[in-house]
Amino acid sequence: MIINNLKLIREKKKISQSELAALLEVSRQTINGIEKNKYNPSLQLALKIAYYLNTPLEDIFQWQ
């Protein structure tokens, strides 16, 4: 199972779901689904999230 800290990191950086979704060219619902662990992002999307949040990938997504 993958645990993610996306919501915590996104809120710490004061970025809304809508703003992050626009940067990543995905829907706000996609961001919401990832934050709620409804599904895991593709590797490409995970890397883009880490890039736009300027945060190491392993700080956002962790195996458990």
Rank of each mutant, 00 (worst) to 15 (best):
K14Q: 12
A50P: 00
R28L: 15
L8Q: 15
Q29K: 14
K48S: 08
Q62V: 13
I3R: 11
L6D: 00
I31W: 01
Q44Y: 10
S42E: 06
G33A: 15
E11W: 07
Q44S: 11
E19P: 02
I49T: 03
Y51M: 10
K36S: 15
F61A: 01
E11A: 09
K36C: 08
I9P: 00
I60V: 07
Q29M: 11
S42F: 04
A46W: 05
A21T: 03
R10D: 01
I31T: 02
L57W: 05
I60C: 03
S42G: 09
I3V: 14
L57P: 04
P56L: 05
V26W: 02
Y39L: 13
L45F: 09
E35M: 02
I2Q: 08
A46I: 04
Q17P: 06
A50I: 03
Y52T: 11
N37P: 02
I31L: 13
I31S: 01
L8I: 15
S42R: 06
E19G: 11
K36T: 15
Y39C: 09
L23K: 12
K7E: 13
L53W: 03
L43G: 05
N40P: 14
I15G: 01
K13T: 08
K14S: 12
Q17D: 05
N5K: 06
N4C: 04
T30L: 15
L6C: 05
N37A: 08
I49K: 00
K7V: 07
M1E: 05
K48F: 04
R10F: 03
I2C: 08
G33N: 15
E11L: 12
P41S: 03
L53S: 01
V26D: 02
E19C: 07
N37R: 08
I3S: 10
P56H: 07
L20V: 03
I2T: 11
Y51G: 08
I31K: 00
N32P: 03
K14T: 06
E19D: 13
I60D: 00
G33Q: 14
K12Q: 14
S42Y: 05
N37W: 11
E19K: 14
V26Y: 03
K13G: 05
W63R: 04
L24K: 00
E58Y: 11
S27Q: 07
K38I: 14
N37F: 07
G33K: 15
I3W: 07
Q29D: 15
I15C: 05
L24I: 13
I2S: 09
I31N: 00
E58M: 07
L53T: 04
N54G: 11
E58L: 09
E19Y: 11
E25Q: 14
N32V: 15
I60K: 00
K38E: 15
R10V: 03
K48H: 05
N4D: 02
P41F: 04
K14N: 15
K48T: 06
L24R: 01
Y52C: 07
N4E: 02
L43N: 07
R28Q: 15
S42P: 10
R10E: 01
E35V: 01
A21C: 05
K14D: 12
